[in-house]
Simulated assay, not measured.
Amino acid sequence: MSNYRRARVPGATYFFTVNLRNRSSDLLVREIDLLRATVRATRQRHPFHIDAWVVLPEHMHCLWTLPEGNANFALRWKVIKFAFTKRLAKTETLNATQRTRGERGVWQRRYWEHLIRDDLDYQRHFDYIHANPLKHGHVQRVLDWPYSSFHRAVRHGLYPPDWCGGNDEMMVGEP
Protein backbone atom coordinates (compact mmCIF):
# COMPACT_ATOMS: atom_id res chain seq x y z
CA MET A 1 0.00 0.00 0.00
CA SER A 2 1.37 3.41 -0.90
CA ASN A 3 1.96 6.07 1.69
CA TYR A 4 -0.08 8.74 -0.11
CA ARG A 5 -0.75 11.95 1.79
CA ARG A 6 -3.15 14.61 0.68
CA ALA A 7 -2.08 18.24 0.86
CA ARG A 8 -4.33 20.02 3.34
CA VAL A 9 -3.98 23.79 3.37
CA PRO A 10 -6.73 25.83 5.06
CA GLY A 11 -8.43 28.29 2.72
CA ALA A 12 -6.65 26.91 -0.34
CA THR A 13 -7.95 26.17 -3.82
CA TYR A 14 -7.98 22.57 -5.04
CA PHE A 15 -8.57 20.82 -8.35
CA PHE A 16 -10.49 17.53 -8.14
CA THR A 17 -11.32 14.68 -10.48
CA VAL A 18 -14.05 12.37 -9.21
CA ASN A 19 -15.10 9.26 -11.15
CA LEU A 20 -17.96 6.83 -11.12
CA ARG A 21 -17.00 3.20 -10.63
CA ASN A 22 -18.69 2.34 -13.91
CA ARG A 23 -16.76 4.43 -16.43
CA SER A 24 -19.30 3.67 -19.18
CA SER A 25 -22.23 5.10 -17.20
CA ASP A 26 -24.12 8.32 -17.92
CA LEU A 27 -25.39 8.57 -14.34
CA LEU A 28 -23.98 12.00 -13.54
CA VAL A 29 -25.70 13.79 -16.43
CA ARG A 30 -28.83 11.63 -16.18
CA GLU A 31 -29.14 12.58 -12.49
CA ILE A 32 -27.77 16.13 -12.83
CA ASP A 33 -30.62 17.68 -10.82
CA LEU A 34 -29.93 15.32 -7.91
CA LEU A 35 -26.20 16.06 -8.12
CA ARG A 36 -26.85 19.82 -8.13
CA ALA A 37 -29.22 19.56 -5.16
CA THR A 38 -26.69 17.44 -3.27
CA VAL A 39 -23.89 19.94 -3.88
CA ARG A 40 -26.14 22.86 -2.83
CA ALA A 41 -27.11 21.10 0.41
CA THR A 42 -23.49 20.21 1.14
CA ARG A 43 -22.37 23.81 0.59
CA GLN A 44 -25.01 25.03 3.05
CA ARG A 45 -23.67 22.74 5.77
CA HIS A 46 -19.99 22.83 4.79
CA PRO A 47 -19.30 26.00 2.78
CA PHE A 48 -16.86 26.19 -0.11
CA HIS A 49 -16.61 28.35 -3.22
CA ILE A 50 -17.03 26.72 -6.62
CA ASP A 51 -14.48 28.35 -8.91
CA ALA A 52 -15.19 25.97 -11.81
CA TRP A 53 -17.01 22.69 -12.38
CA VAL A 54 -17.80 20.40 -15.27
CA VAL A 55 -19.92 17.28 -15.04
CA LEU A 56 -19.48 14.62 -17.72
CA PRO A 57 -21.44 11.38 -17.94
CA GLU A 58 -19.09 9.33 -15.74
CA HIS A 59 -16.72 11.81 -14.11
CA MET A 60 -16.38 15.42 -13.06
CA HIS A 61 -13.67 17.99 -12.54
CA CYS A 62 -13.86 21.01 -10.29
CA LEU A 63 -11.93 23.80 -8.61
CA TRP A 64 -12.97 24.64 -5.08
CA THR A 65 -11.71 27.31 -2.73
CA LEU A 66 -12.22 26.38 0.91
CA PRO A 67 -13.05 28.87 3.67
CA GLU A 68 -10.22 30.46 5.63
CA GLY A 69 -9.10 28.14 8.39
CA ASN A 70 -10.68 25.05 6.80
CA ALA A 71 -8.92 22.35 4.78
CA ASN A 72 -11.47 19.54 5.07
CA PHE A 73 -12.35 18.85 1.45
CA ALA A 74 -12.51 15.12 2.27
CA LEU A 75 -15.59 15.66 4.45
CA ARG A 76 -17.30 17.59 1.67
CA TRP A 77 -16.66 14.84 -0.89
CA LYS A 78 -17.83 12.20 1.58
CA VAL A 79 -21.09 14.09 2.14
CA ILE A 80 -21.66 14.70 -1.60
CA LYS A 81 -20.98 11.09 -2.58
CA PHE A 82 -23.04 9.63 0.26
CA ALA A 83 -26.05 11.94 -0.15
CA PHE A 84 -26.13 11.51 -3.94
CA THR A 85 -25.85 7.73 -3.72
CA LYS A 86 -28.43 7.44 -0.94
CA ARG A 87 -31.12 8.88 -3.21
CA LEU A 88 -30.45 6.50 -6.12
CA ALA A 89 -32.20 3.21 -6.76
CA LYS A 90 -29.94 0.24 -5.98
CA THR A 91 -29.12 -1.08 -9.44
CA GLU A 92 -25.32 -1.39 -9.39
CA THR A 93 -23.47 -4.71 -9.17
CA LEU A 94 -21.49 -5.10 -5.96
CA ASN A 95 -18.41 -7.19 -5.32
CA ALA A 96 -17.96 -9.16 -2.08
CA THR A 97 -15.90 -6.45 -0.40
CA GLN A 98 -18.49 -3.79 -1.16
CA ARG A 99 -21.29 -6.00 0.20
CA THR A 100 -19.28 -6.70 3.37
CA ARG A 101 -18.57 -3.00 3.92
CA GLY A 102 -22.14 -1.96 3.13
CA GLU A 103 -20.97 0.13 0.17
CA ARG A 104 -23.04 0.93 -2.89
CA GLY A 105 -20.41 0.76 -5.61
CA VAL A 106 -21.48 3.94 -7.41
CA TRP A 107 -18.23 5.90 -7.03
CA GLN A 108 -14.59 5.01 -7.38
CA ARG A 109 -13.31 4.83 -3.83
CA ARG A 110 -10.65 7.49 -4.27
CA TYR A 111 -10.49 10.76 -6.15
CA TRP A 112 -7.72 12.93 -7.54
CA GLU A 113 -6.91 16.13 -5.69
CA HIS A 114 -4.32 18.76 -6.54
CA LEU A 115 -3.44 21.81 -4.47
CA ILE A 116 -3.34 24.88 -6.72
CA ARG A 117 0.10 26.49 -6.39
CA ASP A 118 -0.10 29.80 -8.24
CA ASP A 119 -2.07 31.86 -10.77
CA LEU A 120 -0.72 29.95 -13.78
CA ASP A 121 -1.58 26.60 -12.18
CA TYR A 122 -5.08 27.95 -11.43
CA GLN A 123 -5.61 29.15 -15.03
CA ARG A 124 -4.40 25.86 -16.53
CA HIS A 125 -6.82 23.87 -14.38
CA PHE A 126 -9.65 26.34 -14.96
CA ASP A 127 -9.18 26.00 -18.73
CA TYR A 128 -8.77 22.22 -18.53
CA ILE A 129 -12.09 21.89 -16.69
CA HIS A 130 -13.96 23.94 -19.25
CA ALA A 131 -12.37 22.28 -22.31
CA ASN A 132 -13.01 18.76 -21.00
CA PRO A 133 -16.32 18.08 -22.83
CA LEU A 134 -14.58 18.95 -26.09
CA LYS A 135 -11.57 16.78 -25.20
CA HIS A 136 -13.86 13.78 -24.64
CA GLY A 137 -15.79 14.38 -27.86
CA HIS A 138 -19.13 15.22 -26.23
CA VAL A 139 -19.45 18.50 -28.17
CA GLN A 140 -17.84 20.42 -31.03
CA ARG A 141 -17.90 23.68 -29.07
CA VAL A 142 -17.38 24.13 -25.33
CA LEU A 143 -20.40 26.43 -25.28
CA ASP A 144 -22.66 23.50 -26.24
CA TRP A 145 -22.01 21.46 -23.07
CA PRO A 146 -24.76 22.33 -20.56
CA TYR A 147 -23.20 20.87 -17.40
CA SER A 148 -20.35 23.32 -16.95
CA SER A 149 -19.49 26.53 -15.16
CA PHE A 150 -18.20 27.72 -18.55
CA HIS A 151 -21.51 29.54 -19.05
CA ARG A 152 -21.04 31.46 -15.78
CA ALA A 153 -17.45 32.29 -16.81
CA VAL A 154 -18.74 33.71 -20.12
CA ARG A 155 -21.33 35.83 -18.26
CA HIS A 156 -18.54 37.18 -16.05
CA GLY A 157 -16.37 38.03 -19.06
CA LEU A 158 -13.68 35.42 -18.33
CA TYR A 159 -14.11 33.72 -21.72
CA PRO A 160 -15.61 34.73 -25.05
CA PRO A 161 -18.55 32.46 -25.98
CA ASP A 162 -16.55 30.88 -28.82
CA TRP A 163 -13.51 30.02 -26.66
CA CYS A 164 -11.97 26.67 -27.56
CA GLY A 165 -14.79 26.24 -30.03
CA GLY A 166 -13.59 23.76 -32.60
CA ASN A 167 -10.81 22.14 -34.57
CA ASP A 168 -8.98 25.35 -35.47
CA GLU A 169 -9.25 26.81 -31.98
CA MET A 170 -6.70 26.49 -29.22
CA MET A 171 -6.98 23.08 -27.56
CA VAL A 172 -6.14 22.94 -23.89
CA GLY A 173 -4.02 20.00 -22.76
CA GLU A 174 -3.60 18.27 -19.44
CA PRO A 175 -2.93 20.66 -16.55
Rank of each mutant, 00 (worst) to 15 (best):
T65Y: 01
Q140L: 08
G165Y: 10
D51C: 14
R110V: 01
L66A: 11
I80D: 12
A71L: 13
D121L: 08
E103T: 06
E68H: 05
K86Y: 11
T85H: 13
S149C: 02
E68L: 07
L134C: 02
D168V: 09
F48M: 13
W112K: 08
Y147R: 04
F48S: 09
E113Q: 01
H61G: 07
A89Q: 13
C62W: 10
P161Q: 09
F84C: 07
Q140G: 06
F48C: 10
S149V: 02
T91S: 08
I116K: 03
A153G: 02
V55F: 11
L143Y: 03
L56N: 10
M171Q: 15
V142H: 07
V139Y: 07
S148H: 04
F73T: 14
G105R: 04
D51K: 14
R101P: 00
A153W: 02
T91L: 03
N70S: 15
W112Y: 12
D144V: 11
Y159S: 15
Y159R: 09
A83N: 13
S148P: 12
F48G: 06
K78N: 08
V79T: 15
C62A: 04
Y128T: 06
T65F: 01
P133Q: 02
K90A: 11
L143K: 03
V106A: 07
H130M: 06
G137V: 12
R124Y: 03
F150V: 03
A131E: 06
L56V: 10
D51P: 12
Y128L: 05
H156M: 06
Y147F: 14
V79D: 04
G69P: 13
P47G: 14
E113F: 07
V54G: 00
D127G: 05
D121E: 09
I80P: 06
V79K: 02
H114Q: 02
D121G: 06
P67L: 09
E103D: 08
A89R: 09
N95K: 01
A131N: 14
M170D: 09
W77F: 09
A96T: 12
G102K: 02
P133Y: 08
M170R: 15
H138M: 08
A74Y: 01
Q140D: 15
V139K: 06
R109T: 13
M171I: 09
I129V: 14
L115G: 01
R117Q: 05
R104C: 03
F150G: 00
